[in-house]
Computed example of a mutant assay.
Amino acid sequence: MPDLLLLHGALGAASTLYPLQQLLAADHTVHTLDFSGHGGKALPQAPFRIELFAEDVLRYLDQHQLQQVAIFGYSMGGYVALYLALRHPDRVSRIFTLATKFAWSAETAAKEVKMLQPEKVQEKVPAFAAVLANRHQPQDWQEVMRRTADMMQHLGSQPLLTEETLSRLAIPVRVSVGDRDNMVSLQETAWAYEHLPDAELQVFPGTQHPLEKVDLGQLQHEIRQFFGRAAV
């Protein structure tokens, strides 16, 4: 069966993708991984960066002797997938992104970082803090969050996906977003679609940003349809 790699989002882990992985297992050999510092993996000495996470993926491909792979990337995972394909175009055959934020500036980064204050999260949404603590143990979820905020601020000043870089990505890409996503706009998703040479744009109705609130049955259907074309 063809290989398909699933990449998780910021503050996520491979475990968040297990339900989707199970749905797709009948049609693909499905792979997933934890980015550095996520899902219990050791916190790296280097700061969190998209480039670091792309190296995690490349290392995984090499370790599993995967010369080329198709990728589904949720949120930050989609950004990592596109950046990896730009740096190593021979290793990625096609990409499907969901809820990936493309509009990065100092202003948008500042808005995102406001929601990534561990002390406030612990106080105001303790249930979410408990989820993060369990997801990233034995690592400190608060440190994971602080490093994620730092990464977003860096991305706000130096975005990696621009009109120029996206225009060089020749592989088939589908960018998708939920119509009720309050973190990623249809406008920025359409912007990416317009600058990718071989792209499709999809809007999931009644869909918010959190992966836990996505209709996985519908997502499975769309992923199978998109990646199934490669075998035709």
Rank of each mutant, 00 (worst) to 15 (best):
F72Q: 13
A42Y: 08
P89M: 00
W104N: 07
H64I: 00
L66N: 08
V69H: 01
A103S: 15
E107M: 04
E51D: 14
A81M: 15
R87V: 01
G39A: 01
T108W: 05
R59Y: 12
P44W: 05
A103W: 12
Q67S: 01
F102E: 14
A85C: 08
V57F: 03
L52N: 08
A85M: 07
R59D: 13
P44I: 02
Y79W: 15
D90W: 02
Q67Y: 05
Y83P: 11
K101N: 11
G40S: 12
E55M: 05
I71N: 12
A54G: 07
L86K: 14
Y60C: 00
S75M: 13
K101V: 03
F96L: 09
Y60K: 08
S93H: 03
G73S: 13
R59L: 01
R87A: 05
T108Q: 08
E55N: 07
L52A: 07
L52T: 12
L98C: 02
W104Y: 14
F96T: 10
F102I: 00
Q63R: 00
P89G: 09
P44N: 08
A42K: 12
V69E: 08
W104Q: 14
A70P: 05
L82V: 06
A46F: 03
W104V: 02
R87I: 01
L52R: 11
Y74D: 11
T100D: 13
P89T: 00
S93C: 02
R59S: 04
A54R: 03
M76G: 12
H38F: 15
F96Y: 15
D62I: 01
Y79T: 09
P44D: 13
I95E: 14
R91D: 13
T97Y: 08
D90Y: 04
D56A: 03
E107D: 14
D90E: 14
L61S: 00
G78I: 05
V80M: 04
A46W: 02
D56H: 01
L66Y: 06
L58K: 01
L61Y: 00
F48M: 04
P47R: 02
T97V: 09
A46N: 08
Y79V: 06
P44Y: 01
H88V: 03
G73T: 09
F72I: 07
Y83W: 15
V57K: 10
H88D: 08
A99T: 12
V92Q: 06
Q65Y: 03
F72K: 11
V92H: 11
W104C: 03
Q67N: 12
F72R: 12
A46R: 11
G77M: 14
F48E: 13
A70H: 10
A54V: 10
F96E: 13
A54Y: 04
L98V: 07
G39P: 06
G39C: 02
F102A: 00
P47S: 03
V57T: 13
Y74I: 01
P89H: 04
S75C: 15
I50D: 12
Y74V: 02
R87C: 05
Y74Q: 10
